[in-house]
Design a protein around this nucleic acid. Structure first.
Length: 425
RNA sequence: GUGGGUGUAGUGUAGUGGUUAACACGUCUGGUUGUGGCCCAGAAGAUCGAGGGUUCGAGUCCCUCCAUCCACCCCA
């Protein structure tokens, strides 16, 4: 084979489209219910936007970015995530002059140079939502509820919500110091990977998979115990709002997980993740958190924000796994079966059928039997059969392709035909 | 980036080192004049992931590369 798709990318074939349409329609409808509006930003941005926003020390920036110099010599990067771009757009377009907070959603390709495996691609799609311009915990609760509703509306079950708070930047410093000092006591016991990680990002040790580290982590300092007064109030308020929400939504559950960390630098306070039970290692289906420092880091006036990203491909994997019923693909209403040189006589009719909302195709120019088989194979509902006989009588034969198979001859007049067909459908 | 598994028509599979690589589904064509689904018959479709090597002989054994899957890592 001469050409194959680049590693870690995928072709989304027609038969898969029903999943995509279903997920995206559900996403959009749910977000609209919460007052979110669609936003789109460029596929590539100035490399520095991500270095600054996502964080120079993160894996995403250090080794996963698709960066290149364009012909003008500027360093460009295919976006690895959505939030930095949306915040850039917010700043650049003066959105702080709109009513606050602003609520956006987007669906876009994300690019990360990673080793592909199931649920992890080099190009993947994310549906994301952001609330920018208000730091109150009501919005934390709202965005989490939106995430939950979205998953719920898709028909997924057994999805676990984990939440945690990382505190704000001031208290985080002290927490990180204590946390890293805690692990340092056991430095000789730590596995290699984790002793390396300790220097770079001590938070990561909390969700380490190494048995030794796991055990140590259970007694490690918790970020909840380091919260400033404001952050503590924020956190408690969020919890109480979630409890309130649970009263009206019996199957809404959350689990506070002090070991939950997220890989991007801009998160503070609330972080959360939705994970299907029994999912593999690439399980997270939706994840996000608060990023109050981000806009200022990008050069805007200090403006708080919170949001999430959710992988469409992972969502579809889960829908298939749980065998959720998905509305079917595009169907064909009418197939024109034509014998002899009559197709031209029907050209106007075909156009009229389409104009009246009936999806219509003509069968390929083959034997009649073959044309009927074609009609059957594409799951068409109605066949309009025309040959020289019908043309001379100025009529057509209309056959119902459902189980009845009944057939009737009607005049070759678009109005009459359309009325007759609409009656059957 | 690290470790392991896998790689045979469009898809899913079979194939003790030995003639023209098999089966199912799908596609196409027929099964008397212009009627689908079921059934029957036939056809097309694979340089056995790529390139080297061992051998009289390789889909089968060895090496390299590529892709894919699993775990690490990371994250959606």
């Amino acid at each position: 084979m001469k050409f194959t798709r680049p590693r870690g990318t995928s072709d989304i074939l027609p038969e898969q489209q029903k999943y995509w349409n279903y997920v995206l329609d559900t996403a959009k409808n749910t977000a609209n219910k919460f007052g979110f509006q669609s936003i789109e930003t460029p596929t590539f941005e100035d490399t520095n936007l991500f270095k600054r926003g996502v964080g120079e020390g993160t894996d995403v920036v250090m080794k996963e970015m698709y960066s290149f110099n364009d012909l003008g010599g500027d360093s460009i990067t295919l976006r690895p995530e959505g939030t930095a771009s949306v915040c850039r757009a917010y700043i650049e377009n003066g959105m702080k002059n709109q009513p606050q907070p602003q609520k956006y959603f987007y669906n876009a390709s994300m690019f990360r140079y990673e080793r592909p495996q199931a649920g992890r691609l080099r190009e993947h799609h994310q549906f994301g939502c952001e609330i920018i311009g208000d730091e109150n915990p009501e919005y934390d609760a709202e965005i989490i509820q939106l995430g939950w509703k979205y998953i719920k509306n898709l028909g997924l079950r057994s999805v676990k919500l984990k939440i945690n708070t990382l505190g704000d930047s001031k208290t985080r410093e002290k927490y990180l110091r204590d946390l890293s000092n805690y692990y340092k006591q056991f430095i000789h016991k730590l596995p290699k990977i984790d002793s390396v990680r300790l220097a770079r990002s001590p938070l990561r040790l909390l969700d380490s998979k190494e048995a030794v580290t796991k055990e140590l982590s259970s007694d490690a300092p918790k970020s909840v115990d380091y919260l400033s007064e404001e952050s503590k109030i924020h956190w408690e308020r969020l919890i109480s709002l979630l409890n309130k929400f649970a009263e009206n939504n019996e199957d809404f559950h959350y689990e506070i997980d002090n070991k939950l960390v997220r890989g991007l630098d801009y998160y503070n306070r609330t972080v959360f993740e939705f994970i299907p039970k029994n999912s593999g290692t690439q399980g997270t289906i939706l994840g996000g958190g608060r990023y109050d420092p981000l806009i200022e880091m990008l050069g805007g006036t200090p403006t708080p924000g919170i949001g999430f990203g959710s992988g469409i491909e992972r969502m579809i994997i889960e829908l298939k796994k749980q065998k959720v019923e998905i509305p079917g693909n595009q169907t064909i209403d009418v197939v024109i079966i034509h014998m002899g040189e009559v197709l031209e006589e029907l050209w106007g009719l075909i156009s009229d059928l389409r104009d009246n909302g009936l999806s219509t195709v003509f069968a390929p120019n083959r034997s009649m039997k073959s044309q009927m088989r074609y009609a059957n194979n594409i799951n068409a509902k109605i066949a309009i059969i025309v040959g020289p006989d019908e043309i001379s009588k100025e009529s057509v034969n209309i056959k119902d392709l459902s189980s009845t198979g009944s057939q009737k001859e009607v005049n070759l007049e678009s109005d009459v035909i359309i009325r007759y067909i609409e009656n059957i459908l």
